[in-house]
Simulated assay, not measured.
Amino acid sequence: MPSSCDPGDAPAGDVGGALMMIDSRLKSVYDGKTETDAEQKALVDQFAASLGPKGARDMIDGVCTLIFMFMQWLRMAYEDHDKDPLENVVASLVATMRRMPKSMRPEVIPTMAGLVVAAGTGLSPSLWRKQYGFWTPEELTALEVTAFLLAEHINRLTEDRDFATRMITEALFSAEEAYGEEV
């Protein structure tokens, strides 16, 4: 029986924009900038305001697509080593989120864990979340943090700070070549 959360039915969203946002956050953390400076926050706020409602939805869907792609890679990587990807990823993710009380309100952590489990079991995170109504502002911050933590997890596993970003960039480029249009 087909699922209402089938990834083939989900909008991909603005994967390029979402990837740029996550890559920027990774680079600033790797460069030792753990606090978001006022200038960067102003730029992010200005960018978000320029998106408009459709652009914001596309960005959210793009981040969900990244979460799906990151979890598919992690699932294959862990299963290649006879390990359970959900056990290894979700526990680490939740533990890290619990140590981030300024960025992550405790009540959004189960939703983010649910997104990761949905993606890890082959469901679309955006369609899975959609069944619970509109996104809350707290969930949007947590959504970005979730994608960031998954990318960082991949980079740590591969011992390559750019692996997660490069993997998605290469997938986008391959899809563009295969379908002859920008994805």
Rank of each mutant, 00 (worst) to 15 (best):
M97F: 01
R166W: 06
A56Q: 15
R98L: 13
M97A: 09
S124R: 02
M1G: 13
D61C: 11
E35Y: 07
L26A: 00
S92V: 07
E181T: 14
D14Y: 00
M104G: 00
V145T: 09
F148N: 06
Q40P: 06
D80N: 15
K102W: 02
A164Y: 10
L115I: 01
R156N: 07
G8A: 09
N155W: 00
R105M: 11
P11M: 12
P101Q: 01
D80L: 11
P2K: 09
L86D: 04
P110R: 07
V183C: 08
M76P: 02
K102N: 09
L150I: 00
M71C: 15
L93Q: 03
P2D: 00
D61L: 02
A151P: 01
K33V: 10
T65W: 00
N155P: 04
A113N: 06
L149T: 03
L86Q: 13
F134L: 13
V89S: 15
V145H: 05
W128L: 11
P110N: 05
M100W: 13
P53H: 08
L19H: 04
G17I: 01
C64M: 12
T96K: 12
T111G: 12
L74D: 02
L51Q: 10
R156H: 14
S4P: 07
V90N: 04
A38C: 04
S92A: 14
S3Y: 11
E176T: 09
P2T: 01
L93T: 01
R98V: 12
C64H: 12
E170L: 14
I168E: 00
T136S: 08
L150G: 02
M100C: 03
L140I: 09
E39N: 11
M1W: 02
C5D: 15
D160L: 06
Y78V: 05
K27N: 09
E35P: 06
M167F: 07
I60A: 10
L19D: 07
K41M: 10
D58R: 14
E79L: 14
M112Q: 14
I67N: 01
R156P: 01
F148K: 02
L93S: 04
S124P: 02
R156L: 06
N155Q: 01
G114F: 12
M97E: 04
E87P: 04
I67K: 04
M69V: 05
F68Q: 08
